[in-house]
Amino acid sequence: MNKIVKYVLIGVLVLGALWAAAFFIKSNSKSAISYEVKTPITTSIEKKTVATGKVIPEDEVEIKPQISGIIDEIFLNEGVKVAAGDLIAKIKVVPNEQSLNQAKGRVRNAEIALNNVKIEYDRNKTLFDKGVISSQDYNTQKLRYDQAVLELENARSDYQIIRVGSAGGSSLANTNIRATVSGTVLEIPVKKGDQVIQSNNFNEGTTIATIADLSVMIFEGKVDEGEVGKLKLGMPLEINLGAINDKKFDAKLRFIAPKGVEEAGAVQFKIEGDVTVEDDFLIRAGYSANASLVLERKEDVMAIPEALLQFDKTTDKPFVEIAMGPIEEQKFERRDVEIGISDGVNVEILSGINEEDRVKIWNKTEPIKIGKEEDEETK
Rank of each mutant, 00 (worst) to 15 (best):
T207Q: 05
E238L: 14
L253H: 08
P189S: 01
A173H: 08
D194R: 07
V216G: 02
S170M: 07
E225W: 05
G242E: 12
E225Q: 15
G229N: 14
I208W: 05
G193D: 03
N176K: 11
S199Y: 11
I244S: 05
I244E: 01
K222E: 14
E187N: 14
I177E: 00
A212D: 01
A251P: 08
N200I: 06
Q195M: 12
L233Q: 09
K247V: 12
M217R: 02
N176H: 13
L241H: 07
I188H: 03
V185M: 04
M217Y: 07
G221A: 02
M235C: 03
L186H: 06
T210P: 00
G169K: 09
S182M: 06
N200A: 03
L172T: 13
M217G: 01
S215L: 02
N200M: 06
G221N: 01
R254V: 15
P236Q: 06
K230V: 01
L233K: 13
K248C: 00
D250I: 09
N245H: 13
D194F: 04
R178A: 07
N201Y: 11
A212M: 02
N201C: 00
F219D: 02
A251M: 08
N176S: 10
K230S: 13
A243R: 04
G229K: 11
A243Q: 09
G226T: 14
V228L: 07
E238S: 14
K230Y: 13
K192D: 01
I177S: 00
R178P: 01
N240I: 12
G193N: 04
A243L: 09
F202M: 12
A173V: 10
N174R: 13
G205S: 06
K191C: 00
G226W: 08
M235E: 08
Q195H: 10
K248R: 14
E187Q: 12
P236C: 08
F202C: 00
F219W: 04
D250V: 07
S199F: 09
L172M: 11
N176I: 00
V190C: 02
N240V: 12
K230R: 13
L241N: 03
L253M: 09
L233G: 04
T210D: 00
G226I: 12
E225L: 05
N200W: 05
D224G: 10
K232Y: 09
G221Q: 05
L233H: 10
